[in-house]
Design a binder for these strands. Structure first.
Lengths: 189, 189
DNA sequence: GTCTATAACTCGATAGAC
DNA sequence: GTCTATCGAGTTATAGAC
């Protein structure tokens, strides 16, 4: 199944948005970089907002499927967390700024960005909570899940600003150590 | 010292940006909401980018001075952290989306947003590290500072997406408990 | 400092031929 | 599906009177 022209354009558009931002990229300015015309972007996506919606839908779909395989492959929530961080940080240089830019659109209440918010917070948090449940009680699992997601997003944020990946890696390890001790102590009770 | 018209316009502009976003706010559309004209915005700030620069400069100055008083008033880094979270979360409904939107501009490498990045990551992290140094060794202080800032920004992010302030408050308390245990155990060595 | 007016430009959307 | 061409509304920046 070879992707149609629409899917090819969408992939290229995401790459370009990741580099240049959504903020000051117009359909006119975007088209030449994708080897197409403004008319074709309008034709395939209906409108500028239609293109943004398609971009977010694809990002959401990719994130969701990646998350599913992640927790299928790692029964240990700490291993899953470490692996999730590694993937996010590796991709950050490419897609990190776009991630936070589109998320800010969700915060402003833009319709086309609502699914993104649901995916990057609610669903991811739920996946972490599910993994923690095997190690601790329900209430602790929920609060640790929220904290874990926050650590991931917060370190992604810091890394994108100051480019200090090593410091963020160290912080992840520190956090894993902290939580592991916490879960072991609650299991001993 | 009563503020001049420029400063009054700037304050109102920040409030409006916080509600509507920078992305789709033009000088023309902004002016009537501030009780002025597009001509006056150009006159006082030179250009649209000049206005954005002024907005960021003010946000940076306010954040820096708030941070200084924060650590002057609370010697206990855990109290300072809790208070920092309280302030950030209280202001989040007003300025949170703007914070992440402008930060994404810094990630894209926009000149006018560089100072913002320095302030919200490098300087804040340094302030936390300074506070932790009184409780633990240098290396641990640095990694805990990075982790603490990440928790704050990450929970701010989650709260802005899903509006669950209570869950974030609980996560902050959980984190303080974790780190307090960590610091006490390292002090015992 | 403030106003009106406008120049010069860019945008998204669309018409219509092929 | 793809092209050229254009409409109409939007933008910033600026000229010039008061």
């Amino acid at each position: 199944m070879t992707p149609g022209p629409r899917e090819q354009l969408l992939d290229k558009a995401i790459t370009h948005f990741a580099r240049e931002g959504v903020r000051d990229t117009s359909l006119r300015g975007l088209a030449p970089h994708l080897g197409t015309s403004q008319r074709m972007l309008s034709y395939h996506f209906g409108s500028r907002e239609g293109l943004l919606t398609a971009v977010i839908d694809k990002v959401v779909a990719d994130t969701t499927s990646a998350l599913r395989t992640l927790f299928d492959e790692h029964a240990d929530p700490f291993e899953a967390g470490r692996e999730n961080w590694r993937r996010a940080a590796d991709g950050a240089r490419l897609f990190g700024a776009l991630f936070f830019e589109l998320s800010s659109h969700a915060m402003y209440g833009k319709d086309y960005a609502r699914d993104l918010g649901q995916t990057v917070v609610t669903r991811t948090e739920e996946a972490f909570a599910e993994a923690y449940r095997s190690r601790t009680d329900e209430a602790t699992a929920r609060v640790l899940a929220r904290l874990t997601l926050a650590v991931g997003n917060g370190l992604l944020f810091s890394t994108l600003i100051d480019a200090d990946r090593a410091a963020s890696d160290a912080a992840v390890e520190e956090f894993i150590t902290l939580v592991r001790a916490r879960v072991e102590s609650s299991a001993r009770q």
